[in-house]
Design a protein around this nucleic acid. Structure first.
Length: 471
RNA sequence: GGCGGCGUGGCCGAGUGGCUUAGGCAAGGGACUGCAAAUCCCUGUACCCGGGUUCGAUUCCCGGCGCCGCCUCCA
């Protein structure tokens, strides 16, 4: 398996720290609002990675977190907590807000065919670990205290700028990154934030530095190392995390735990370019999985859509493009079901030269830094290559579905649609139309078809007789 | 302004110094159908502009134009 590592800016070979096992950590959502389709893309990448490694026979531990405290709405290290703001806005508690959006996110993950995480830690459950890590940093002289809280002193970590290729001197010269007056360097960041004098936050905890709440980077360091070990194989997230969040995670973790490099491979998923359909989050109208459902698009069509572009390239989004993916997925499932049913669902090892060649091509693409577009081109070939027997076709598609997760083993013929003949009125109209057709009274037959179409029921004549499905 | 990336056929979107006509959707043709729809089969068009390197560049270098991201919470 070859993967792109952001730190080294190169595609490198995955060498598990512990043979046969791979630990993966992905920065999860801050649960104060729905996760957009763009957010879901950055969860999609590690799911594909994980499924590929599992198919390779590796033991994978996948951890992603729930950030239910600590991120701030404004720039730098000041401003209000997003979750507190959402709670204030809706008159709920912070816990209610977090629980609601956590559940929504988990539902969306499932609808997009993602495996459940092996661990799903919540930041609020890891206060002792976070405090401990801050204390370690303090003991090693990497921190200083100001009224606002405990800050990480980047000058104590010579490699601070390396991860993201930052220019610290310019950062210093070009002035403020935020408004925390007492910070020694603009890049210094909060490890522990003190609660404001005389006021009480919804979420605050006691600590060696007084009542407050953890800084916004320390949770990932604490949870990932607690669950995966001091070092683990792969850390993923969105590209927007490279500059600040991951740079700071690396700094505090390497300093606290004395390891370098802390994580060998950092993978970052590019943005989904929402372009014209971009809708402001603050207006409460966002593109989410439910938006697709409302448009009559299957969530798995979005998964198919994501497979069509490489995770390190920005991908153009539009509803029409996802509809195109929906069509492509439906046809793929049709081929898969036909092949599967032709061989009674039995999966045999692909034996023929052509089959072996295609299977190798699929996995080679996946192992080449998750080249899913290339892999999908192989899948499309497999779906209709005339040289393959149905048994070979089904074996290859079932094999690929370990990663695709389109549910090919359980899928039904998509052209069949849902059965609507249990509605007596519809059933009678269908019978009327059949009678008219047999009497060669096509005017009447077509009128009934149009009438049912107006009610959203689509009639399809097939060699086996008419089929009706609700659109 | 600084840093990074991109510009491929109608729309997406892989890829390569000289046979991948990648693949998907759309489009056109055909099969099927009473007609459709759905489905299946077949087919076409490409590498932003200008230089350069090279026997040869879509692929490498330089310049230009255009677009995007980050630099501020953000996947």
């Amino acid at each position: 398996m070859h993967l792109h590592d952001t730190r080294r800016r190169a595609v490198v070979s995955l060498e598990p720290l512990e043979p046969g096992h791979v630990g993966i950590y992905t920065c999860g959502p801050t649960v104060y609002a729905p996760q957009t389709l763009g957010n879901m893309r950055s969860q999609f990448t590690p799911d594909v990675l994980r499924r590929t490694l599992l198919a390779d026979g590796l033991d994978v531990t996948f951890v992603t977190n729930i950030t239910d405290v600590g991120h701030l709405v404004s720039d730098g290290d000041e401003g209000d907590d997003k979750i507190e703001a959402a709670a204030a806005r809706t008159g709920s508690t912070a816990e209610e807000i977090a629980a609601h959006w956590t559940e929504q996110w988990a539902t969306d993950r499932r609808r997009l065919g993602m495996l459940e995480p092996d661990h799903l830690p919540k930041a609020t459950d890891y206060l002792p670990q976070q405090i401990e890590m801050v204390a370690m940093l303090e003991a090693k002289g990497h921190t200083y205290r100001i009224d606002d809280g405990v800050y990480f002193d980047v000058s104590t970590f010579p490699g601070y700028a390396d991860f993201a290729g930052l220019d610290l001197t310019e950062m210093e010269a070009s002035g403020r990154v935020d408004n925390i007056a007492d910070k020694r360097h603009p890049a210094d960041f909060a490890l522990w934030k003190s609660s404001p004098e005389g006021s009480t936050r919804l979420q605050e905890w006691d600590s060696p530095w007084g009542v407050g709440f953890p800084g916004w980077h320390i949770e990932c360091s604490a949870m990932s190392t607690d669950l995966l070990g001091v070092q683990f194989d792969i850390h993923t997230g969105g590209v927007d995390h490279i500059r600040v969040h991951h740079t700071n995670e690396v700094a505090q973790t390497e300093c606290a735990l004395g390891v370098h490099p802390w994580v060998p491979i950092w993978m970052h998923t590019e943005f989904l370019n929402l372009g014209a359909v971009k809708i402001s989050k603050s207006k409460g109208h966002v593109l989410v999985v439910d938006t697709l459902v409302e448009e009559g698009i299957a969530p798995l069509a979005f998964r198919y859509f994501l497979f069509q572009a490489h995770y390190r390239a920005q991908q153009t989004f539009s509803l029409d493009l996802v509809r195109a993916a929906d069509t492509a997925l439906r046809r793929l499932v049709g081929h898969a079901v036909a092949a599967r049913d032709a061989v009674g669902g039995e999966v045999v090892a692909p034996s023929g030269g052509r089959a072996a060649e295609l299977r190798a091509a699929f996995w080679a693409a996946m192992h080449d830094d998750l080249n899913t577009p290339k892999a999908m081109s192989v899948v499309s070939t497999v779906a209709r290559d005339p040289e393959l027997t149905p048994a070979e076709r089904w074996a290859l598609l079932a094999d690929a579905d370990q990663v695709l997760a389109f549910g090919l083993s359980e899928a039904t013929d998509p052209s069949a649609g849902g059965d609507v003949t249990d509605d007596p009125v519809v059933a009678r109209r269908l019978a009327d139309r059949q009678a008219a057709k047999e009497a060669r009274d096509f005017a009447t037959a077509d009128a009934i078809r149009d009438e049912l179409a107006a009610d959203g029921i689509e009639i399809t004549d097939t060699p086996d007789g008419p089929r009706a499905r609700r659109r």
